[in-house]
């Protein structure tokens, strides 16, 4: 348990801002993370999004680049 997480402010973007972010970056320079369940992901997701269901997230940090923008939903 990392308590720090409760005090770390996280940036937030609405849909339009997020789209702008994606348009301003090459896909290799931005990450999109889908933390929902596989069934939800399969029913529809933002193109290019990586699926890491929330229960697996804390074990999957290695799959993500820490320095690149990471859009999470």
């Amino acid at each position: 348990m990392r308590w720090k997480q409760f005090f770390t402010p996280a940036k937030s973007m609405n849909s339009a801002e997020a789209k702008q972010l994606l348009q301003d970056h090459e896909l290799t320079d931005v990450q999109i993370l889908d933390v929902r369940q596989p069934a939800e992901y399969h029913a529809g997701h933002i193109a290019g999004a990586i699926l890491i269901p929330l229960p697996r997230l804390s074990d999957s940090y290695d799959l993500l680049a820490k320095d690149k923008p990471l859009l999470v939903y």
């Binding site: 720090k4 770390t8 402010p9 996280a10 940036k11 937030s12 820490k66 990471l70 859009l71």
Partner: peptide
């Protein structure tokens, strides 16, 4: 927030 607390400084919530 979980990611931001673990070094993902560019994590952005949609």
């Amino acid at each position: 927030q979980q990611l931001a607390g673990n070094g993902f400084t560019n994590a952005i919530n949609l």
